[in-house]
């Protein structure tokens, strides 16, 4: 049973602020869908409507063709950005309770919870009060609460925030595994490097509107290969000279490495030539599409300068 999530012309208004403005997108089963946007863009408002915590003023949200409601809530798992559990309740008791609220019978819930804790190497937490666990451990418990009832649609809002790299890795593997099992996964974040690494499709919203939408290769393909990554050994004064001349912008720069966005009239050879002329040892020079962070920035700026949402082809 694979269920696609579809939003059509969804609008939500709080008082006088338009939180979500005519948003449409589809998240397909077996794919990782990235819902991106700066803080306050309307991600959480959108997710609240998907999870049926609030209802849209207009437009529709459907899961597998059915409007979302109590029935669809049981088939969703939601990991909110602001985590929270009952601190005094024991881990197992709490997870079983939350799974029961999603419609699982007590024995099934207990079996699933034990399996998931086992998988995270946390079987011996079962009888411990949540408040006694470290923050990272609590995050894992909350993650289990999101997936223990085997939902068809998983929504993760900033799932990796506050996790150490090792635990983030475990979580990422689990998310990829959910995708492989045909689940619909929605992943909300403003951490572009994670989105770039994981997502199949993405939708960028800014000020409540969709400003960019498509599959990851599609979106990246819309921008040329105008970004150069240079690795070199030596002084980096040549970079500043090129920037001052208006030939390019620096996206990131560290000791012996720079990511450069070339201006319209600048050829890659100009950059490489300048580096060589400065007498530095270039160990690597590569050309590629701009990173998502940069695309994100441009799209937001374009969205702000051109108020009506730019026409974007549906994925």
């Amino acid at each position: 049973m694979a269920l696609a999530l579809r939003l059509e012309n969804v609008t939500k208004r709080y008082d006088k602020t338009l939180a979500v403005d005519d948003v449409s997108f589809t998240a397909e089963p077996g794919r990782l869908f990235g819902l991106l946007g700066p803080n306050g863009a309307g991600k959480s408002s959108t997710i609240r409507m998907i999870t049926n915590i609030t209802t849209p003023d207009s437009g529709s949200v459907t899961l597998g063709g059915e409007p979302v409601g109590p029935a669809s809530q049981a088939r969703m798992g939601y990991l909110p950005e602001e985590r929270g559990l009952y601190k005094k309740m024991k881990v197992g008791e709490q997870l079983v309770y939350l799974a029961q609220l999603k419609g699982l019978a007590a024995p099934d819930a207990e079996r699933a919870v034990r399996e998931w804790l086992e998988r995270f190497g946390a079987a011996d937490w079962y009888g411990k009060p949540v408040g006694d666990l470290s923050k990272g451990m609590q995050q894992k418990v909350q993650f289990v609460s999101t997936v223990a009832h085997d939902p068809e649609l998983c929504i993760f809002d900033e799932p990796f925030s506050g996790l150490d790299p090792l635990n983030a890795e475990v979580l990422q593997e689990t998310i990829v595994d959910l995708r492989a099992r045909g689940k619909t996964v929605v992943f909300a974040s403003h951490r572009m490097e994670q989105v770039e690494r994981l997502c199949d499709d993405l939708c960028l919203i800014s000020a409540g509107r969709v400003v960019l939408r498509g599959t990851l290769p599609e979106v990246k393909g819309r921008y040329g290969r105008d970004t150069a990554t240079v690795e070199f050994d030596g002084a980096d004064g040549w970079i500043d000279r090129l920037v001052e001349a208006g030939a390019m912008r620096v996206l990131s720069r560290s000791n012996g490495r720079a990511e450069l966005r070339l201006g319209p009239g600048t050829r890659p050879n100009d950059v490489l030539g300048a580096a060589l002329a400065a007498g530095v040892e270039v160990s690597q020079f590569g050309l590629h599409a701009p990173p998502l962070t940069e695309i994100f920035r441009m799209a937001v700026e374009a969205g702000e300068s051109a108020p009506p949402a730019e026409p974007v082809p549906a994925p």
Partner: peptide, 11 residues
């Protein structure tokens, strides 16, 4: 402790 958001997505 924000659990209300999780609860509201279930009941």
């Amino acid at each position: 402790n924000r659990i209300v958001e999780v609860m509201a997505s279930s009941v």
